[in-house]
Each structure stands twice: as structure tokens, then as C-alpha cells.
Amino acid sequence: MKIFVIDNGGQWTHREWRVLRDIGVDTKIIPNTTPLDEIDADGLVLSGGAPSVGLEVDKMGRNSEYLEKADIPILGICAGHQFMAIFFGGKAGASGIPEFGKATIIVDDEDDLFVGLPRKFEAWLSHNDEVSEVPPDFMVLAHSENCPVQSMKHTKRPVYGLQFHPEVEHTEHGYEIFKNFVRVCEVG
């Protein structure tokens, strides 16, 4: 199983690599300028990035190419998730109340990512922006008190977004969320 991490410049990009490695996935971090035809993987994680990178298209390299053309599962995290919303026709912008540190995630639909998890758990976040309008063909999987879209999913493709960070040690059940994503990649 090969899942690569697309580096959008996040503080926790390397953590995503570490968690994937720890659960037995063959993984590496690659620049977000890597052409899709040079990527030989079973799944992709689009990492988070520096402030507002989700809204600054030029800094997001070839993320749109991956979202448009890759026929493998994709998990967008934070900036990756926000960029995904914009790419598919939704909206992202400044959060009314940004979240830093701990917040409670409330699962609305366990779908694939939250299988086997409690309906409420503590996660760690660090974002100034958020998805304000879910794209057509997407459904919301989770929210928090101050952020209506903590997770979303494409209804026709294995493409997922997370606003919170499953890769950091302080997030509960983070490793399980990655394992659930690996299962999606196994199915293909």
C-alpha cells in the first residue's frame, strides 16, 4: 500500500508521513509541484499549509491536477480540504471564530472515515479559514461548535476533506481515521 503526502507547507505535513509510516504504509512526502504522471501511489493526502494557502491558488501547485485527474482516493487536510471545496465549486473563507488547539468533533455521518469511532471526540485544530459552502456532490460528515464543515465527502468519488488534524498526537482516534482511509485506498 503506497500513500504519498503532498506537501502544501503545513507544520504537521511530516506528522502525516509519520502516522502513515507507523501504520505500515509505504509513504513519502513530495512537493505539490510534482506532476501527476510521476506519482505512483494508491492514495494521496493533501497536507495543510501556511495561513490562507487554501485561498491562494498559486501556492497550491498541482493540487487541482490531482483533484481533477487522479483516479485514486484523496484525503485533503486543513488547507488541502479548503482548496478541495473551492476546486469543486464550493466556498472557503475566513472563519467567524477560528479554532486553535482543542475542539470537540461531532460526527454526523460515519461513512468510511469515521467507522468504529465515537460520535464525539476531541481533536486539535489550527485554522484561520474554513469551508463556508460545501460543493455540489459533497456531503458533510462532521462539524464542531464553531465550524460547520469539519469533514466532507464527494458522493461519487473517494475524495474526502478534514478541517481538523488527525495526524497530531493530541487528536483522539487520529490513527484510526488514517487506517480507515487506508481501507478506502485498498478498495481503490
Binding site: N8, G10, Q11, T13, G49
Partner: peptide
Amino acid sequence: IAPDWIESGGQLRDTI
């Protein structure tokens, strides 16, 4: 170690 170069930033990554 990893947090040293991650937080020091460079290219896309912000300098914390």
C-alpha cells in the same frame, strides 16, 4: 530533529 527544521520554515512553510 524534525520540529527544528519544520518550525524554522522555508519555501512554502512559514517560519514559526
